[in-house]
Simulated assay, not measured.
Amino acid sequence: MTREELLYNAWLTELNTRLGRYIVRLIDEAGRHPDDASSFPLEELETSLSEDLTELAKAIAEKAARRSNPQPPLDLATDDTALQAALAYAAMDLPVVPGAVWHEGRFVDPITGEPVTRVALQPADTATTDLAQVREWWDTPTRRGQAVLAVVGPKLGAVSIPLSLTERLVRHPWFTTRPTPVVQIPDLPIAFVLYRPPTPPSLVTDHVRLVDEGTTIPLPPTAVGTDSVGWWTSPEQTGNTLLTGQELADLIHSIEGQQA
């Protein structure tokens, strides 16, 4: 099972737990006296669940559509798109490593075409912002098909959030004037929001999951199946800067407070 599939299953498990709590809440409501107060409005819980279930339906439909289409032959990149992207990310102080590519339901080394068990083709703890090292990893014709992976750690933080919250985040007036990069991976009902550590405890909420240190996140132009990883908000749109963890936490709490 791939890391993306594990993240997807973790999201499904969390959604299933919340759905179970909703059912229990309905049972409680049936026997509740009209004057009894609840600390969490049922309408808010229903709205949140409906948004997540809508995202689940979309993800299932997209997966079904992809399975009906055969995978094309492995196409190794011959231009320097990945190299230029890796150099740009490193210049932003985002640690990167080269990665395998997804092909016919498995990860393969784009140099040999052989299956691999690890997404990163270099250890995550060797992730670098050194431009010379980046060139060495990507700047040969046989290596240009390698994925570009950012590594979460002391220089880069990331959280995953549902797409419904992502849409509210990128439309928020404060975010439009002070954005941070947001990554979209095909088939996942979540997006990854990048920020600068440290990570304040308040950043993690019911809808915001912290990405562990050492985790790799594919960045454009990395391909997943027949699609490429994309940006909700690109580094160019942010002026090649990231929000701090505290700034992101304050923004998300503001958005969740407006929904309450």
Rank of each mutant, 00 (worst) to 15 (best):
D206I: 07
F107R: 13
I255S: 03
A100Y: 08
Q84S: 07
L53T: 12
P189E: 00
A127F: 13
P95E: 11
W174G: 06
T226A: 11
S164V: 11
A90I: 12
R144F: 04
T13F: 04
T54E: 14
L163E: 07
T166N: 10
A82S: 14
E236A: 12
T17Q: 08
R67C: 04
N69I: 13
A124L: 10
P197A: 09
P73L: 15
W174H: 13
H207L: 03
T241H: 09
P197V: 13
T216D: 11
P201L: 01
I111H: 09
H207C: 03
R66P: 00
P200Y: 12
A124F: 11
L12D: 05
K58V: 14
P235W: 00
T241I: 01
A86R: 03
G105Y: 11
T177I: 15
T81P: 00
V152M: 01
Q133D: 07
K63V: 14
A120I: 02
R196T: 12
G145R: 06
L243V: 05
Q122A: 13
W232F: 10
T129P: 13
R25I: 05
T126Y: 15
G225S: 05
T112R: 11
E256Q: 15
S48I: 11
D227K: 15
T140F: 01
N69W: 07
P162I: 01
L26K: 05
I255Y: 08
A100C: 05
T112W: 03
A88M: 07
V97R: 08
A150Y: 08
W231H: 03
V211I: 14
Q237K: 14
A260Q: 12
D93M: 05
T216M: 02
V224D: 00
E167Y: 03
S50A: 15
E167R: 00
A64D: 14
Q237L: 14
V152N: 04
G225Y: 13
L165I: 11
G245E: 01
R25L: 12
Q146W: 02
L165Y: 11
P41G: 07
L210R: 11
R209N: 06
V182S: 07
R66L: 08
A57G: 09
G257A: 05
S254Q: 14
T126M: 15
T180W: 04
P189I: 05
G157T: 02
P154D: 09
I255N: 07
A37I: 10
R178Y: 09
K58N: 03
V229G: 01
T177C: 02
V193S: 05
L219E: 00
F40S: 07
A147I: 02
L242F: 11
A150L: 03
N16S: 15
D52N: 06
V170H: 05
L188S: 03
Q237E: 14
